[in-house]
Computed example of a mutant assay.
Amino acid sequence: MEATEIRKLAALEDTHWWYRERRALLSRALKKLPRPGTALDIGAAGGGNTRVLRANGWQPVALEYSPDGAQVAAERGLNVIRADARALPLPSASLDLVVAFDILEHIDEDHAAAGEIHRTLRPGGTALIAVPCDMRLWSAHDVAVGHVRRYTRDTLTSVVEKAGLVIDELWSWNVLLRPVAAWRRRKSTGSDLDDLPNVVNMGLTAIIAAERYLPVKSLPGVSLMLRAHRQI
């Protein structure tokens, strides 16, 4: 992701509907896990998810490839390291949790990053992964934010299982707003990460939050979410 996009993300992530609901999703996922332990937030950028981990009692490290992302995370008082997700500078079997939200789609060798997640997790450790889905939604937005692919359920499953992880749950996210996203992406000329008027932001927040209570996880969405664990 370009430095300008990282700075934009850092400025917006506390209030933007998409990032707020994704943090809420992470917080809910954490409550289903055993007691907190060591965690790695790959591609932490502004550190929003890292702060969720810390608030829920985990001992998190934010990992960023770009100097700008690492600097933003450090400025926010987070424990941060700069490294490549394909070669994590951490001992094998040293983590209880790895969070990789919207990371794999930026990496040509996504299998290598998934393999590193497996290597660094302790047996029984959890991986929480999010990726954009469906190449029919490919647009200038994907180019602007540095994506190299969007996933299907089958392609994401293949990458994760070949790395040795066991999938516990795989579901769609941002389902209700998929028609809006598809329409906007057709007209897109760049990143659609914008500072929205409050009334629009509140409306989108209400819609995306409604997915918590509706049976839509099996329907096509804009993103795929996955929970997996290392068996051995």
Results as ranks from 00 to 15, higher is better:
L33V: 00
E64T: 02
A70W: 00
L177Y: 09
S66E: 15
K187Q: 08
A210G: 06
A127K: 01
N79R: 12
W18G: 00
V166N: 01
R184L: 00
V80L: 06
E116L: 08
D168A: 03
V175E: 09
N198E: 15
V180A: 05
A206Y: 10
L204I: 13
E116V: 08
G77R: 15
R136L: 12
R136T: 14
T38L: 11
F101L: 04
R149A: 11
Y65D: 12
T152D: 12
G69Y: 10
L219A: 12
L12M: 09
R22Y: 03
L165C: 04
S66L: 13
N201S: 13
L53A: 00
A87E: 12
R51F: 03
G57Q: 06
L63N: 05
T15A: 01
S172N: 09
H147W: 07
D102E: 10
H229N: 10
T120H: 05
I42L: 12
A127C: 01
P36H: 06
V180Q: 04
L33F: 02
R119N: 06
G190F: 07
S188R: 06
Q59W: 03
P179F: 11
R22A: 07
D154N: 05
M1R: 08
A113Q: 08
V98L: 09
R20G: 07
A73D: 10
N56S: 15
L226F: 12
P89D: 06
L137H: 01
A140K: 03
L224H: 07
R82D: 15
A73S: 14
D68R: 10
F101E: 04
A181P: 01
A73Y: 05
V199I: 15
N56K: 12
R76D: 05
T50K: 14
L156P: 00
N174K: 01
I208S: 13
